[in-house]
Design a protein around this nucleic acid. Structure first.
Lengths: 233, 233
DNA sequence: TGGGGGCGTTGACGTGGATCAAATACGGGA
DNA sequence: TCCCGTATTTGATCCACGTCAACGCCCCCA
């Protein structure tokens, strides 16, 4: 089976954005390694040597940081077309765990070869920088969420973010299923699982959405959005 | 006055790490523009076009994100040798405000020229990637802090982080003055200024440090560290 | 030298979310 | 199909931090 970037339908979301055909072929050679993971498998562990970044081809991941004293923070959820492992570049060690939330497939991109290729292809170099920068911006958004929002605002922001990302991938932005548990959502949002569950129930009571287990249907996304933007006192 | 990277005493903390003499000279040409700011001046505003990243040469900065509804989150504090503006790469727009907390000086590094040079100098390319990645790792640390720590733990982590960074710059790691207000610390840590103030008082009562306005002296840094690492229940 | 404004501290009180606990729903395997 | 372990929901109670308010300190400027 042919599994190159050049015929991947995620190429407009992933690393190859804006590359010419001949450039895309060079990238193909670099991204030859694929890896399949089953639900629950680790793509990498914190502390492990960093060699490659990974592009999610199918499936769903979470990344988290654990520390000895038992603290545990989910730092992100990744869907197809998104990159994993950028945090490992700094010390050539992965600094978090990446775990498949469902059966998944990733493309491994050997980092030193990516640096090599991006010295040749300006477009690739610039795009890669933008991807890293976007990750920083995303993290600032999460900091804002964790630092200033109340529980329901956090959950609303989270759901709308998922909604956008599903939409960008051609899935329904109003009906989707969560791949992660209430506990994992809570860890990401700095809340306890009970609080997440209560916020879901409340949203449902108020007619903003319907939840059945992990099946979500957004009924009134606009009101969800207002809930976040609402003037502070 | 000669103000090149090659004779800057921050070069081992900043962008030039590990460059050979001839490479350093090329970098010098790129980093020719300097800018002085007075306390309270903006280095850039959110929304402004992104052209350069900046290296702090002297002084102290904060970056923050404001949103319409009045929310406000400090996303970081930057000291000499650290870079500002990496978040602007993604959309060629600055996404936050950078404000001098005291009279400061920065070196402007035109980004497209930096990309050009890093295509020629592998060491520079790799180092720049590590700097961006380090920023991502730092942000994950803040997410952990905001998501899982209680007020006193957050403040302890903050103070120890400042302490390390002062030490790395040759200043005392146990005696320093904060350049930011209680309110700014609170915004960074996801706390109200009163909570920050109370935590300082409590630390002082318990003999962990002494505070007089913005003058801090760490008396028992080890116990501060324990306070953070303490086993969760 | 005195007054005013900004910043910081401290106290009293309220509340959002954590914690503890129990009941229910679901999914996967024998 | 039944059973068991795990995830989720819901209720009752608690507490860390937020809120509101008063006061003190410091610095700047007239």
């Amino acid at each position: 089976m042919k599994t190159a970037c050049s015929n991947c339908n995620l190429r407009e979301l992933c690393l190859p954005i804006g590359l010419a055909d001949d450039e895309l072929k060079k990238l193909d050679q670099l991204v030859s390694t694929r890896k399949r993971l089953k639900r629950g498998d680790h793509l990498y562990h914190a502390g492990q040597a960093f060699e490659s970044i990974f592009a999610v081809r199918s499936g769903f991941f979470k990344t988290d940081v654990l520390i000895e004293d038992g603290r545990d923070q989910v730092t992100g959820f990744q869907m197809p077309g998104e990159l994993l492992g950028l945090d490992g570049i700094s010390n050539e060690l992965h600094t978090c765990n990446a775990i498949a939330l469902e059966d998944s497939e990733v493309c491994a991109i050997p980092f030193s070869r990516l640096e090599g290729l991006s010295r040749q292809i300006h477009t690739l170099q610039n795009h890669f920088h933008k991807v890293m920068s976007r990750e920083i911006v995303r993290d600032h958004g999460v900091m804002m969420l964790l630092g200033t929002m109340r529980a329901e605002e956090r959950l609303a922001a989270f759901l709308l973010n998922l909604s956008h990302r599903f939409k960008a991938r051609g899935y329904s932005p109003i009906e989707f299923n969560l791949r992660m548990s209430r506990d994992e959502i809570g860890s990401y949002l700095g809340l306890k699982l009970e609080t997440v569950s209560r916020a879901f129930s409340r949203f449902q009571d108020e007619g903003l959405l319907s939840v059945h287990q992990r099946e979500i249907r957004l009924i009134d996304p606009e009101r969800l959005r207002l809930l976040i933007t609402h003037q502070r006192t």
